[in-house]
Lab assay of single mutants.
Amino acid sequence: DVEPGKFYKGVVTRIEKYGASINLNEQVRGLLRPRDMISLRLENLNVGDEIIVQAIDVRPEKREIDFKYIP
């Protein structure tokens, strides 16, 4: 289970102007929005990149997770 405040290694699977889709595994994925990137710009991400993200909002009833990137 993903817990708010914990850090996870994820893989960038899609990049859109509203954010990047991050997969932690086949069943768990979430969104990294541009506003939640401290020192990383969306255009510097590539599909397949592995990054460390922090879960900031977990809504299991909607199967949604928001991530934050902290270098």
Rank of each mutant, 00 (worst) to 15 (best):
Q27L: 13
D49M: 13
R59V: 05
E16C: 14
Q54K: 08
R59E: 04
K9T: 08
G48Q: 01
L32V: 03
G10P: 00
K62F: 11
K17M: 11
I22P: 01
K6L: 08
P4I: 15
I51V: 06
P71N: 07
N44M: 14
V2Y: 09
E16W: 15
G10T: 02
F7Q: 03
E26F: 12
I70H: 08
D49H: 03
L24V: 10
I52S: 04
R41Y: 09
V11K: 09
E61S: 11
F7I: 06
R29T: 14
V11P: 00
R29A: 14
N25I: 06
K9C: 15
V47M: 05
I51Q: 00
T13R: 04
L45P: 00
G10D: 00
V47D: 02
E43C: 13
D1I: 14
K6M: 10
R35E: 12
S21K: 10
G5W: 07
D57W: 11
V28L: 13
F7T: 04
I56S: 06
K9W: 12
V2R: 03
L45D: 00
N23L: 14
T13I: 09
D1W: 15
P34S: 10
V12N: 00
R14L: 09
M37V: 05
V12W: 04
G30C: 12
E26C: 13
E3S: 10
E26K: 12
E3M: 14
T13H: 06
L32N: 01
P60S: 09
L31A: 02
I22M: 01
T13C: 09
V2E: 08
L45C: 04
L32S: 01
E43V: 08
I65S: 03
V11F: 09
G5I: 02
R29S: 15
V53M: 04
K17W: 15
P34W: 12
I15G: 00
G48L: 02
D66F: 15
Y8P: 00
R41V: 11
T13Q: 05
R63Q: 14
N23S: 15
E3T: 13
R35M: 08
N23Y: 14
V12A: 00
T13A: 08
E50P: 09
L32F: 04
S21L: 15
V58Q: 03
Q27F: 15
N25F: 09
I52A: 02
G5Y: 07
I56D: 02
K9Q: 07
L40K: 06
R14C: 07
L42P: 03
I51Y: 01
R59N: 09
L45V: 06
Y18Q: 10
V12D: 00
D49L: 05
Y69E: 06
I70F: 11
I56G: 06
I15E: 00
E3K: 14
V53E: 00
